[in-house]
């Protein structure tokens, strides 16, 4: 066991660094850049029952300290993921992977989870009830405690793998959603997904993104993510994965002190494809600076 090792729902990770869903594809493109086996794990692209092309162009916009995206859950569908993407992933990644699942109905969540449950390499199911970029589903499950609990229960019934519920920050009371998921049997919580935002194109006098709204990610949302992780970690007993704007080893320590057992890194992968490799490299020296022997010991260290 190294200084960086942590536990996530009974599965050991060599380090707490997990590229977040939607910023890392199915891994193999990053495997051309560095050995992705150095990662704790990664969460693959959000997968739905049917193939989805996603939203119209443009889908991306710059913001101060971050970016908006309205990709809209583009993915090849669960069957293609199992037949095509996972075999490619298996060639370059030899650890349990986190399967990110999205849906538009309870049935869709359970169908996709049941199929991915049978895949040996899937270590955890991360259930996205927080995508702000699709209509008639996604985030609506994550903004109401009763619905969040219903998805959690339904998914738990079709899998023996740990279920991590990925929460939306676009709510008035994040703690009530997290507790509802915990009470319904969730094995872990990940937060935060992106914040619902908008930019206007001055020339066109219209929203810049074709979808109108998009999800904000990047450094700009880091303090908000810290606050929400802190609140949730204080009120649940299951492990919390912290994400939102992390881009340095110091940010990782801060997120863990706020209560995260491990962290996901999202938008930073898009501007610096080597960011996760570099953070893993930087962590021991930064831990030394703050007299941290084992990183797992700092989880929740700032909670009062």
């Amino acid at each position: 066991m190294g200084r960086l090792s942590v536990d996530l729902c009974g599965i050991g990770l060599d380090n707490p660094i997990i590229p977040a869903s939607g910023t890392f594809g199915y891994g193999y493109e990053f495997a051309e850049l560095y050995d992705i086996n150095m990662l704790g794990t990664f969460s693959f692209k959000g997968t739905t029952r049917e193939p989805r092309f996603g939203n119209a162009q443009p889908r991306i916009a710059e913001t101060p300290g971050g970016m908006l995206n309205a990709v809209g859950l583009q993915n090849p569908g669960v069957q293609q993921v199992i037949s095509h993407e996972l075999p490619l992933l298996k060639k370059c990644f030899h650890k349990p992977v986190m399967a990110n699942v999205s849906g538009f109905s309870i049935d869709e969540y359970t169908d996709v989870c049941a199929m991915l449950d049978k895949e040996e390499q899937v270590g955890w199911l991360e259930v996205n009830i927080s995508c702000p970029n699709v209509h008639g589903g996604g985030m609506s499950f994550g903004t109401d405690p009763a619905q969040a609990a219903e998805v959690t229960k339904a998914v738990k019934a079709v899998t023996t793998k740990p279920v991590i519920m990925k929460l939306s920050p676009n709510v008035t009371d994040i703690v009530s959603i997290a507790k509802a998921c915990e009470d319904a049997g969730a094995d872990g919580i990940s937060l935060i997904n992106t914040l619902l935002c908008m930019r206007i194109d001055l020339k066109k006098r219209a929203p810049l993104l074709a979808n109108g709204t998009g999800g904000l990610s990047g450094s700009a949302i880091f303090p908000l993510a810290i606050r929400m992780v802190y609140q949730v970690a204080k009120n649940v007993k299951i492990p919390v994965i912290g994400l939102g704007g992390i881009s340095s080893a110091e940010n990782v320590l801060e997120m863990m002190m706020a209560g995260a057992a491990c962290v996901e890194i999202g938008a930073a992968n898009l501007t610096d494809p080597f960011i996760c490799r570099d953070i893993i490299r930087d962590l021991p020296a930064v831990m030394d600076k703050y007299s941290i022997q084992n990183i797992k010991d700092i989880t929740g260290g700032a909670l009062k």
Partner: peptide
């Protein structure tokens, strides 16, 4: 030409049919 997120295939920001 498209507005891009990453430029190397990770984010699906610039997809076209």
């Amino acid at each position: 030409e498209r507005r891009m997120g990453c430029g190397f295939g990770a984010c699906m920001g610039c997809s076209c049919k």
